[in-house]
């Protein structure tokens, strides 16, 4: 037979222990009566202290450039625009001259406009997965709160551009993978494509 009120007292004991565990003196008290206790506080006081995110933590995509900002890897193929589930990528391009021939920088076509609406992006990383050129990657910055919906939360090409160095810095292992893949690709295509770097107007 259970004795009346024992469950009630047990419940009170649990909360009291949790209460005491959040204070240093409380932990001393608990240990003094023989109850093992660890720091009970789990809150991270956000603006003062930050959580250590894992390397794979992702929030918002950015465009990778190699050496100079005009040397971006994106060729404006628009695959990501089509695949993005909430359709928050908006690309105008590839850039063309007056005759309608594609303009190239560093041997690649490039987008005129590349906007991503952060307020809509759901951090799914599908754009990164579908990009055949490893031109878009996920960033781990997340403090973008702003009262200006369209001025500050729609990122244009200039804001999205970040260097491959930066990518290597925030996600070393992922960057190494991408670099290896790009190097393998280049090794395959490099020998025949050597003279094709300076002028190449025949791809309308």
């Amino acid at each position: 037979m259970t004795i009346l009120g024992v469950g009630v007292l047990k419940g009170l004991g649990v909360t009291l222990k949790t209460f005491l565990e959040t204070y240093p003196w409380g932990r001393v008290l608990l240990r003094a009566v023989g109850i093992p206790s660890a720091n009970g506080l789990v809150t991270i006081q956000y603006p003062d202290e930050r959580q250590q995110h894992s390397e794979r933590f992702r929030y918002f995509p950015f465009l990778v450039y190699d050496k100079t900002p005009d040397d971006l890897r994106c060729v404006s193929c628009k695959i990501c625009e089509q695949e993005c589930p909430p359709a928050c990528i908006h690309i105008v391009g590839p850039a063309k001259d007056e005759q309608g021939r594609p303009l190239k920088a560093h041997g690649r076509t490039y987008p005129v406009k590349f906007d991503i609406d952060m307020a809509i992006c759901m951090s799914c990383r599908i754009c990164v997965d579908v990009c055949p050129f490893d031109a878009i990657e996920m960033d781990n910055q997340y403090e973008f709160a702003s009262p200006d919906r369209f001025g500050r939360l729609v990122f244009d090409k200039q804001q999205l551009l970040k260097s491959a160095e930066y990518f290597k810095q925030i996600k070393p292992s992922e960057a190494a993978e991408v670099d290896a893949r790009l190097a393998a690709k280049q090794a395959k295509t490099a020998p025949p494509a050597k003279p094709a770097v300076p002028p190449n107007p025949s791809s309308a």
């Binding site: 909360t15 949790t18 209460f19 959040t22 204070y23 009970g40 506080l41 789990v42 809150t43 006081q45």
Partner: peptide, 13 residues
């Protein structure tokens, strides 16, 4: 404060 401590939180700080 007390209820927060019982829920492993700080309460108002």
């Amino acid at each position: 404060k007390v209820i927060a401590r019982m829920q492993n939180r700080f309460g108002p700080t």
